[in-house]
């Protein structure tokens, strides 16, 4: 307040304006860092909530140098392959799960690190309750139906089968990772975090306007646990149907090809006076 009065008294308007901008910018910056964390990091990491797909980040800035963190966040894969001992060890600890390269700027990365630092140093580890503790076969079946598209997501997202496969499903997609054993690396909490705010660009596009409901996420996590622990109910096993797809494609083509050949046979191929001309030639040959 003393500073404010001093600035007004001395008519340092520009300085005052600058101070206001900086103050508001600081607030905006704080909100921004939090929303960036929620959008880009929260699907795999928590701050004080325990390990998800990646490590709990509480106190990470006390543990590692900021330069090291920025390098890892920008492109963890190339950092690991550069041979950095700590980076390689972390990669191994998390089964070499790929952390997508950051799509945010250095300034934004630093702001997120500042946001993490504002949450304090790492405290004692809390005992975690299994997310899927109460999951039943009913949840597994519902998850299976959502995964295969037999039931629609409430908010209209695409079925998982469009891009992913699991072993018991007849016609899983091959664009993205096979999820049969995904539970082993992600666990229930990891799956929940990933599906709540997908960080992978293709999934972000597919679900940013069609966010999954909590019950749907729970059922999908239950289903993925059953595939990884080989406890899928026997009635959910489907025969593979890729061969039907190839058969349909090639036999359909053959059918149309025959139609076009018939079209050629019945097509009027010569001019109207062709027959007269031909008759003349026949006469000559006699």
């Amino acid at each position: 307040m003393v500073l404010l009065k001093f600035l007004i008294k001395r008519n340092y308007n520009y300085l005052l304006l600058g101070l206001i901008i900086v103050t508001f910018h600081q607030n905006a910056f704080c909100q921004d860092a939090e929303s960036i964390f929620k959008k880009s990091c929260a699907s795999c990491h928590s701050i004080g909530g325990g390990k998800l797909i990646g490590p709990d980040l509480q106190g990470i800035t006390y543990k590692r140098e900021s330069d090291w963190l920025v390098k890892f966040i920008k492109n963890s894969q190339s950092f690991i392959s550069s041979g950095d001992v700590d980076a390689v060890a972390i990669g191994k600890e998390y089964n070499n799960s790929i952390m997508p390269p950051a799509t945010i700027s250095d300034v934004e990365i630093n702001s997120v690190l500042a946001f993490i630092e504002s949450k304090g140093a790492a405290g004692p580890k809390k005992k975690k309750v299994d997310y899927l503790l109460k999951a039943t076969d009913e949840n597994v079946i519902k998850g299976y139906r959502l995964f295969t598209g037999k039931d629609q997501f409430i908010n209209g997202g695409s079925a998982c089968i469009a891009c992913h496969n699991v072993t018991n499903v007849g016609n899983g997609g091959w664009l993205a990772k096979d999820l049969t054993m995904s539970y082993n690396t992600m666990k229930g909490e990891g799956i929940k975090a990933l599906l709540s705010s997908p960080a992978f660009p293709a999934m972000t596009n597919a679900y940013s306007n069609n966010i999954m409901e909590e019950t749907e996420i729970y059922n999908l996590a239950a289903y993925l646990r059953s595939t990884a622990t080989f406890k899928v109910p026997s009635n959910l096993y489907e025969p593979k149907s890729y061969s039907k797809f190839y058969f349909l494609g090639f036999s359909g083509f053959l059918f149309l090809a025959i139609l076009f050949f018939a079209g050629w046979f019945f097509r009027k191929k010569q001019s109207v006076n062709h027959e007269i001309f031909k008759r003349q030639l026949r006469t000559e040959k006699k």
Binding site: S158, A162, G173, W174, L175, A202, Y242, F245
Partner: peptide
Amino acid sequence: ALPWGSSW
């Protein structure tokens, strides 16, 4: 090689 294109 990358089914199902219509969906994704």
